[in-house]
Design a protein around this nucleic acid. Sequence first.
DNA 1: CTGAAAGCGCTAACAG
DNA 2: CTGTTAGCGCTTTCAG
Lengths: 359, 359
Amino acid sequence: MAATTIKDIAKRCGVGVSTVSRALNNHPDINPETREKIMKVIQETGFVPNDSARYLKRSESNSIALMVKGISNPFFTKMIRVIESFVQERGYTTILRHVDTGEDEVLSAQSLVKERRLKGIVFLGGNFIHDENALRQLGVPYIFSTIGNLEERANYVENGHKKVMAANIAVDDVDASRKAVEYLISLGHSNIGIITEGLHVPSVGQLRLKGYREALEAHKLPYREDYIYEVNEGVEHYSMPNGYKAANELLRRHPDLTALFCISDVLAIGACRAIAQHGLRIPEDVSVVGYDGIEEGEYYIPRLTTVRQPFREMAEATIQLLFDMIDKKCRPQNIIMPAELVVRESTGSGYRPEQQKKL
Amino acid sequence: MAATTIKDIAKRCGVGVSTVSRALNNHPDINPETREKIMKVIQETGFVPNDSARYLKRSESNSIALMVKGISNPFFTKMIRVIESFVQERGYTTILRHVDTGEDEVLSAQSLVKERRLKGIVFLGGNFIHDENALRQLGVPYIFSTIGNLEERANYVENGHKKVMAANIAVDDVDASRKAVEYLISLGHSNIGIITEGLHVPSVGQLRLKGYREALEAHKLPYREDYIYEVNEGVEHYSMPNGYKAANELLRRHPDLTALFCISDVLAIGACRAIAQHGLRIPEDVSVVGYDGIEEGEYYIPRLTTVRQPFREMAEATIQLLFDMIDKKCRPQNIIMPAELVVRESTGSGYRPEQQKKL
DNA sequence: CTGAAAGCGCTAACAG
DNA sequence: CTGTTAGCGCTTTCAG
């Protein structure tokens, strides 16, 4: 039970430690028989090498880290899967790190770079802007994925010294949101509420709200602040209970609302439940549009109309760009992917005789 | 950018490395001024110590590992949250590890024990039975949580040498499943299908199927193998597409089914979608019961009837027992928690005139 | 209070 | 092919 080391194994086999190391690491220059013998002892002993020591010694690693903030969001779960498979395809290893809400993902990444000799980093979710200095400290290529359009983010950074030029993969959140809301308007809706997040900090929430506002203004519809609900409770803001609470509140205050734009599917599902609870039907009484395009929306009843982020393509582009940066084949860049409005069953006509409502 | 080490910091500050180490670790025996000075340089430099080196040197850690298999299942996400908070309450650190489907969780745990000087391990999800030897090799207390009742599991192990006495927290899967199906029977259903998993390997799937069978037999209803659907596709078996496919198939082959018992909520939601697609209503035409009690079920339309596993209590019991074992206050034991049938909207009467169906 | 020095367990030259 | 040896970066005695 006492910590077995490579030395113990060497002794038991009557060989030197380096030979054991060679056996362990599948080195070519070792007698097959010797290897056999050593492996057998390792099996019997149940010996497992100490990774700390290995990493400490190694100078390279062929691994990249995936720093995820908000792991309970199914959208990220999907991204993770796909990213992992692409990384593996390249013969690299993914180190998945779940970053807590209060934790600083860049700091954790720094730690990992040193510890595991990372080749690169992918940030999934999390803060919109970061300390440039800390970012530079990382010393390896990094990329932000699905956490907002850099062009927009750059605006926030100009206050500081210079524009950041960080690698970034995202959809055009403003544009996609505008189109979603315009679709609602085309259906005849004019009283459209929005359930959003992060109103007062740089975030995708702000971007998506901006799109909502643009759509309204383009169609000469009033932009009313009381039609906006900002969720801000719980460990994770993007949650069904938050969507539920938001829609409840909105519906109570504004019975005239006929459509709700939610900046994530999870929020939208919570909202749908609230609508049903109010005795209203979807989409006959209230239409709902989500954002992300998670599987859950497809299986919901009614199937959710949503802005789909092409997670597979985004994951692929993320890895492609990261590896190009690692191979010094290109500099950081900002890639915008097309988001797609997927019309399903949760949206319907906004034209209706007043009395038909509350049927 | 070159790897900064504690040595560089020491040089820059004109002190010895051990002093820097002391500053870094908040040691008491250091001049506050010296510490101040060192910390300032560390700030400026953006120095981050190498964790591998730290862990390698340290002999204790106050951390426990949480090995999760099937991280996309929301039920586990919940458990993780709660477990993490309880561990933190004790002043310990949780190391969360996501174990891939093909990966051996015990082996990964072994590696972590050495690397991070773990105090204990929690296995969440994953295999039903394990190699006793590998388990013993771990050298620290470990506990299985929500992966089946040990009494049942022990049956599988007796074939080997001796009964395992591993710590285990679970609900009584057989009993809970029996009650769920009996509820369906009490509603008047007699053609009840089951969507399950892992029919041919020791798993909770087998346990829950056993409960289903017992209910049927207790009420003199025929146990028909063609009413059983075993999901087995994709990276994770517990998924909505699998539930969808299963229900589709079952409904196609047996239009006479009036109820479906699904061994997880995720599966149940997929099944509901299939039922809706068939133009059938829930619960008027087909009743559905899930298992787990995840939030998604509460927000579904209709709200899902389910067997709720008390995740908060289970998480608490898991940590309590693990720490008692760490503190040598008790030996491993098998704790059974009460599962609760939560009746919501997806179940209804099974008595109906034949023609009313397919309305 | 502080510095020098001895490893933690492993890998990778280097010299057989 | 194999053993010896020098560290990887850090913590921790042990003397000052």
